[in-house]
Structures are given as structure tokens and as C-alpha cells.
Design a protein around this nucleic acid. Structure first.
Lengths: 207, 207, 207, 207
DNA sequence: CATGAATGAGAATTCATTCAT
DNA sequence: AATGAATGAATTCTCATTCAT
């Protein structure tokens, strides 16, 4: 039995019925993953919760990896779209305020999906999905870079700068999601991350 | 009969022979984990690679979780000790230089153990080892806090500050470990993280 | 996740194929139990003998206990039904003759299933099946009590009387099954048990 | 690895130390068997409880079967001796009273060792120990036969009579040990068994 | 003789995947 | 296409037994 299986969906479902099926399955998988983690997400259970036969599941996902991978992709894409939407909403607020809004959004996004993020982080490597995740991050970094330019900030090495800025902030958020320091209010945490980012930006100007 | 199995080693190996055995098993596990990830680390395989019978393995680790947990603990402890050692070596260099040294050390530590860190981050939650990991982080954060104080830096909320500082830097490093930006030299990355941290510290003084 | 596993069948087999499967598995288990005792009845062996995959076995029995338990239940129920059938056949023969028929039936039932009865007695306690067995015994005791009443025998404490009568007779039969006295004909043994029971009944009348 | 192992002790221990060792091991085994049943009586556990090394245990018992077998033998022998002692104490009481005393003794013997008797009944067959048990029963049946003769009772087929008498009474007692009827006093149960036996004896005289 | 660390065959159970209907 | 019963390789873990010290 070959373990080297395809990771992309077996067929691109074009008919409505299939579309719905795929959607149902992905939603069920996401829910199970969110509730019980990877261990509880057996293919049979997914099919059962989705109200679909296990055979049908395998009609659309050649194996479990493809299924989990699709969930990750869908989640990542959804998040990217959400960020894009929020960025567009931004008006002419001062840079610090804009960053605070973005950071709060990220904070809430992670906090609201703790278990799923955990699974994503756990399983993405095995599933060769990390690249997708990192591509998404780079995409968002690009958007943020443009935002900063619009505020007149032109780092020497823009890619590197955005990498540090974004992953610095996310590093704090991610850890906070798992091990939030006692006695600290969410708001204070967000303020502090803003400080980290603002300090970095100032440092770039006057090193 | 409790199915909630012990997570600590079954017997504390006091005799030389056993000491060696435990060591051998942990080393083999680490190697397998490093090479092939959690999925490849079956208990039988560990025993085989360690050149030990499966029975002996279970003589010292009541179940697989305890084994993996022990590996995580051992690694965490080793890292903590290493950091402590490096911190002691620090002399009277300017603060920026001290931070650079510490950041480089962390950078190299992660880079040199990529796969193991991945497994640790993956499995720690299931094994209730996260607390150990975070405790270790907090311990180091405390040491770093003391270091900063020795440089005359007295944050208002020291715990929160150290949390942000440390996890901000580690966030960049961790991501870099998995997705290093192309065309960037290690040295540049380290410099940039130093900038992130220094900017944050200055921001604390003059907000 | 409860480790206290279900003891009842995992799914109630409604389709013909499954019905047959469950039947096949139970029959195979009974045969193995009869031939080699509990120790030889490994789940894998049962599956093999039944010509069924081990997976299928676990599809219908959540664990080994449930399997053995089902065998015991099935056997007990079968025996009860058999006794009921025989009791119905009874006509207007004199009481002694009626008892002789019943005793002979019990004698033959035990004799024909020696090893299975042994396993049942061995494993029933662990499997919490004893209650079922004793309930069955009490049920039959009730039927016998009614029979006696129809012959004008009204013991003071009917439950106790039936307990002694029935288990007295069964005690002899059970031992005989394992250690039949040499030089004694089955018929003589049965006659003697009838004497034991008749003597007891007379004693009740004229103590 | 041969499963057909010796069942008799590996060596007959003649030295005091060994005698004590064997005794200690048998006692520990009995205790474990009594408390937790056969499943809990692993050889390693027996050795531990006995305060003896597992190696020493195997010095005196070639395998587990021999160990359990020895426990059964010892228990059976002890019981036989106890019965003999009690029988000797009997004076010139009327036969019914003598029988009552004996039955009460048997009743108490079983009641006081429920779990051990259960194990004996379970494991004896596998261990080819049944013969010993039945031999002991026959021995006691012989003594009881002599007792009856001393009361002027001369059954036609003495062996068969004693078989029925003894196993009839024991059948009631054994079942009572596991499933005592509610609302019945021990004393009443014993009286009823006496009635069963007395009725049988009368039946022998005037059929 | 005693020790107890070491052994490894074998048992129960799971779950991704297939395929006859 | 859909179904879900059936499959069986693979995994964890136990415990009787051995043998070097």
C-alpha cells in the first residue's frame, strides 16, 4: 500500500452537488479538529458527522492527508481574505492606530481558533502545507509593507523588515494563545505588542 | 486498574546499567524523532534502534507518552542549562552587544534542532508538557529581566515586558527556522532581531 | 474517552449479511471455547476460524469481553428456551416421572457441553455475566416451583426450597460432569438424583 | 518455547530456608489470588509481595502453572485436614445434629474463602488439579460414609450414595456462595440443606 | 543459591482504505 | 455515484521466563 499518496483532491468537483458535499465534509472536519484535535478526526468519524458515507468522502479526497490539507488551505485562504478586507477598511487613522487595529484582529483571530491553529501548526509540516501557510504570510506581509510605504516608511530591505515585524508580533500572539501571562488584560497585551512594533519602526528611522 | 497512566518514568534507574539504558533509549528516540517525526517513532522501532528489547523500554517508561515526554523534558532542561551557562559568560559589553550574543545563541539552538523542536511543539500539548516548556521560558525570561535591570532598565510591568520581548524575538527565530527568507544572511537576520528588541526597549523609556 | 468499554454489541446487525456474520463469529467463538478453553480464544484466532477479518469482529463486538459475554448470553438463553420447551411437553405423568425427565434433560445438557460450561463458569464473574446466569436459574426455579404447586406441593418458603432443590440436583450433575464415579451407569446416577429430590420433597411434608 | 511444562515443583525443598521460602511464596500467592483473582497474580507480583526475587521463585516453581497448582494443592490438603479434625471431634450426637455440624463447617469454609474457591474452580481444570480436588472429595466422602455406617446406615451402592449426598449439599453451598437468595438467614439455609440430606437418607431406607 | 534486569512472543485494538452491491 | 461492510497492517503494551552477575 503506497503511503506516498496524492495530496491534491482527486477531482475538482464541478457539479453543485459535489461542491456542497466537499463543503460539508470540510466543515465537519474543521469542527471535529476544533473540538477534539487531530486524534479524534478519524476519516470514519468525519464521514459520520458530515452525514456522508465514508465511500463518498474518499470520492473527493484520495486520503486523509488530502482532507486535512484541504482544511488547512481553506482556513488559510479564509484568513487571508479576512485580513485583506480589514486592510481595505482602514482610512486615514494615524499609523499607530492602524497597527493597533491590525494587531487586535490577528489577536482575536488566533484566540478564537486556538485548537484549529494548534492542529494546523502540528500537521502542516507533515502535509507539506507549510509552504502554503508561509506563502499566505508573505502575501500579507506584502500588503502590510505597502501600508507602511503609504505612511512614508521605506525600509532598506523591505522583505526582511516585514518578516521581522510580522513574525515578531505573531510570535507574541501565538505564545499568548497557549500561555497567557496571568493578571494581564488582553488590551494591555495588545498595547504592548503595538509598542514592540512601533519601537521597531522608529529604530529603523533612527538607529 | 487506572488507565490514566503515569507519565513519569516507571522506575528511577539507580544502577549504572539502567542509567545507560535509559540514556540509550532517550537518545534513540531523539534521533528517530529528529529524522522522521512523531509518526515514525513507534515504540518497537525505538527499542530496535536503541538495541534494546521492547520489554526493557517498557520497564523504564510505562507508556509511549512517558517516553516522548521524557525526551521533551530532557531537551528543554538541556537548553535551559545552556542558556544559563551562556548568560554567566556575559561580561561588561554594552547592552546591544549582550542581546546580540543571546539572540545568536537562540538562533543557533533552534536552527540546529529544527525537527526536534517541531516535534516538541507538536506533541507537548498532548503530553501535558507545555507547562514544562513554558515554565522554562518563564525561567529564562526572569534571567533576562535581571540582566536588563543590571543595565538600568526597569519596565513598569516586568513580566509582561519580558513576555513580549522574548516571544517577539523567538517568534521571528522560529519562523525563520521553517521559512527563512531568501537572499538574507543569517547575520542580517540576527541584526534585525536585535533592532526589534532594542527599539522595544527604547520605546519603553520614551514612549 | 471512556475506557469502560461497552459490553453490548457495537451495532445491532440489521442486514442479513451482518446477521450471518455475528452468528458466524459467535459460533466460531463457542467452538474454540469448547475445544481449547478461554486461553486459546484470542480475538485474532476467533476471527481466523470464523473466516472473518479481525476488523469485522471488532465492528460488531467492541472488545473481547463483549464477545465472550455474548457467547455466554446466547448459550444461557438457548438453554432456558430448551428447558421451557421441555416443561411444556410435560403431561400428566406422576411427579416422580416428571422430575426424572427434567433431571435427565439437565444431565444431558451439561454432559453435552462440558467445556463450554466450564468456560462460562470461569469467565462469567469477570464479565459481569453471573447475574444473567443466576437470573436464568431463578427463572427456571420459578417454573419448577409452579410445576410443584400443580402437584399440590406448597413449601413454606418457596424461593428457598426451590433454591435448595435445584442447586442440590445441579451440584450433583455438575460434579458428575467433571468427575463421574467409575462403574456407575448414567441411568443410575439420574435415578439417584431423583431420589435426592423426592426425599427432600417428602421431608418438606413430614419433617 | 515449550508450553508443555512440568507441573510438579522443580525440586523438593529439603532445607529449612527453602521450606520457608516456598511457604512464603505460597502464602503470598494465596493472598493475591484471594484479593484480586487470577488476573492480578502475575509471577512478578507474587515475587514482589513475597519479598523474594523472581529468580528465586523460579528456583522452586518451574512455571506459573506449578505455582498455582501448588496453592490449590495446599488449600485442598488444608481443608481435608480441617474436615478430618472436625469429624474426630464428633461425639454421640444424633445423626441430624452431626450432619448439621458438618454442613455448617463446609458452609463457613466456602463463605470465608469465596475468591480463592472461585480461582480454584476456574484454574483447576487447566492445571490438571481437578483430579486432586476430586480425590480429596472422594476421601472425605469415604469418611462420611463410615460415619453414616456408624449410625446404621448401609446404602446399597455406598460410593454413589455418598457422591450424591455430598455433591448435592456442596452444590447448594457453592451456589449460595455466589448468589445467596435475598431475605434468607444463613441458619435457615443450613437447616434447609440438612433437610435435603436427611430426606435423602430416609428415602434410602424407605423408597 | 539469589538477584532482578532483560527478553520477546503474543495479545487486544484501531483506523485508513477498498470494493461489492 | 453512493454506500458502508469488510479488511488487515500496524501499534501499543503485558508478562512468563531466562541468565549474566
Amino acid at each position: 500500500m503506497s503511503k506516498k499518496a496524492r495530496i491534491s483532491p482527486r477531482k475538482s468537483p464541478k457539479q453543485q452537488r459535489s461542491q456542497g458535499l466537499v463543503e460539508t465534509i470540510l466543515t465537519a472536519t474543521t469542527r471535529i479538529l476544533t473540538k477534539g484535535g487531530y486524534e479524534t478526526a478519524t476519516t470514519n468519524r468525519v464521514a459520520e458527522i458530515a452525514g456522508v458515507s465514508i465511500g463518498s468522502l474518499y470520492q473527493y479526497f484520495p486520503n486523509k492527508e488530502a482532507l486535512i490539507g484541504a482544511v488547512i488551505d481553506r482556513t488559510v485562504e479564509g484568513n487571508v481574505r479576512k485580513v485583506e478586507r480589514e486592510l481595505k477598511k482602514l482610512g486615514d487613522e494615524p499609523i499607530e492606530e492602524a497597527l493597533r487595529l491590525i494587531i487586535r484582529m490577528a489577536f482575536e483571530m488566533y484566540m478564537g481558533n486556538r485548537p484549529l491553529f494548534r492542529v494546523m501548526f502540528e500537521q502542516a509540516p507533515r502535509l507539506e502545507r507549510v509552504q502554503n501557510i508561509f506563502r499566505a504570510r508573505r502575501h500579507i506581509a506584502g500588503l502590510l509593507g505597502a501600508l507602511l510605504e503609504s505612511y512614508g516608511i521605506h525600509p532598506r530591505n523591505r522583505e526582511l523588515t516585514m518578516f521581522v515585524l510580522m513574525n515578531g508580533a505573531l510570535g507574541v500572539i501565538q505564545t499568548a494563545v497557549f500561555d497567557f501571562p496571568e493578571g494581564v488584560a488582553d488590551q494591555d497585551m495588545i498595547d504592548e505588542i503595538v509598542r514592540l512594533v512601533m519601537g521597531y519602526l522608529k529604530e529603523l528611522k533612527n538607529p
